[in-house]
Amino acid sequence: MAPKPKVLATNPVFPETQALLEAHATVEINRSLDPWSYQEVRQRCRDAAGLLVFMNDSIDANFFAACPDLRVIGAALKGFDNIDVQAATDAGVWVTIVPDLLTIPTAELAIGLMLSLGRNIVTGDRNIKANGYSGWRAELYGAGLASATVGIVGFGLVGRAIAERLAGFQCRLLAYDQSVSVALAASWPSVTMTSLEDVMARSDYVVLALPLTDDTRHLINSRTIAAMKRGARLVNPARGSLVDESAVADAIGRGHLAGYAADAFECEDWALEHRPSGIDRRLTDLSAPTVFTPHIGSAVTDVRREIELSAARSILDALAGRVPSGAVNDPGKQLAHAQPAAR
């Protein structure tokens, strides 16, 4: 009997995920909440056929050169900017993602961030816990969502899920997305599709729902922030480097932005060589009008379990010679193209 292939999981996984993988593979798992370094993952993966990766991993061309047995990377993610897909394809390695399970949890968190930021929920909670409570005071006045103009930048699955959930708040909804078809726009009569400049100029809240690409990195910068209406609030449940955090801190300091809420940060976009080492301290000061969560957009227990299982099934499919679900490349075609023509 042939030995089972090795599958490496770079972060702790649910027992169900481990059991599924162990039925078909020898499994090595990082059981600590502290992530392995790039070098350690590469070293442990040298004899692995499958790799289950998460948000805190970065996979580049040098990684594939050191892992000749690798056949598939299953990302428990929707975004895959931390994986060099072209290098994977060149190395004959499948890359799979989980494209839809993160949509609703991320949209829900976006609404929570908007409410927390506008209504000073986190500040109120912190004040009571630090100082106790003796009754109402005329303080912490904020902004609600009812009748607010909300601009959604990016109108894919997450952007549309955010719009759907905001409908109950009677918001005026604007959206910007260059890739939206006329038919899709027509199917959302409650949303006005417009330019990025118009979204910025008219919105009380701007919510980001974009992937991180070369074109979207620092889409929110000093210039686009200056185009926002004074007193607007910015919400980022997507990718940290969509936003120039230093520019946001400057705008809050000038009083141009009324607040910033985020679930993702520049410092964790591991594939970017010149990312900052942490969050701008002006934004994490307790007096700053900010609300931050530690990248918990998909952190709903049942959802995370199914995300892992979906990624694990894709790994097992690829190892069994089947086309895996959620594939973002096709190394088989690349390899076939590289073969010399038959004589």
Rank of each mutant, 00 (worst) to 15 (best):
Y205F: 05
L242G: 01
G255I: 01
V243L: 13
R254S: 06
N221F: 05
S241R: 03
Q170G: 10
Y205P: 03
R165Y: 07
V207E: 01
R172Y: 02
P237F: 15
R233I: 03
I220W: 09
T192I: 15
S203R: 04
A261Y: 03
M200V: 06
L166Q: 11
L257D: 06
A161G: 06
S181A: 09
A186D: 14
G240L: 05
D198A: 10
L210T: 08
V206R: 00
V243K: 02
D177H: 13
R165K: 14
L196N: 10
L173V: 08
A249S: 07
L234W: 04
S181R: 03
H218M: 13
A163M: 10
R230V: 11
D177F: 15
Y176I: 10
L174P: 07
A226P: 02
Q178D: 11
V235A: 11
L242A: 01
S187A: 11
A249H: 12
A163N: 05
V180P: 06
A161T: 05
S187V: 05
K229V: 08
S246H: 03
G168Q: 01
Q170D: 15
S181W: 00
V235K: 03
V243G: 09
R202I: 00
V235C: 10
Q170T: 12
L257R: 03
L173N: 02
G255Y: 03
S190Y: 04
A183G: 14
A185I: 12
A251W: 14
A247M: 06
V207A: 04
C171D: 00
H218A: 11
S179F: 15
A227R: 04
D204V: 03
Y260Q: 12
V207S: 00
R239D: 14
E245C: 05
R165V: 12
P211Q: 00
Y205R: 08
V243H: 06
A262G: 09
G253R: 14
H256E: 08
W188T: 07
S222Y: 15
V182S: 12
A175N: 14
H256M: 10
G168V: 06
M228I: 05
G168P: 05
A201G: 11
W188I: 04
D204A: 08
A175I: 11
L257P: 08
R233N: 05
D215H: 10
A167T: 06
V207M: 03
A201S: 10
N236C: 06
G253V: 12
R223K: 13
P211K: 01
D214L: 10
I225A: 08
M200T: 09
M200N: 15
L210M: 08
Y205C: 02
Y176K: 06
S246T: 14
R165W: 04
D244G: 15
A175C: 13
A249N: 03
L242M: 06
L174A: 08
G255C: 11
R165S: 12
W188S: 01
A183Q: 15
E197G: 08
V248A: 09
W188R: 14
A185V: 13
R165M: 12
Q178K: 15
H256W: 01
L219V: 06
S246C: 15
D177R: 07
A227H: 13
R202Q: 13
E245H: 10
S190G: 09
D250F: 06
L242N: 07
G168E: 02
D198K: 07
P189Q: 12
L219R: 10
L219K: 09
I252H: 04
K229M: 00
L234E: 01
G259N: 07
C171V: 07
R239T: 11
A232N: 05
P237D: 08
A227T: 10
L234R: 03
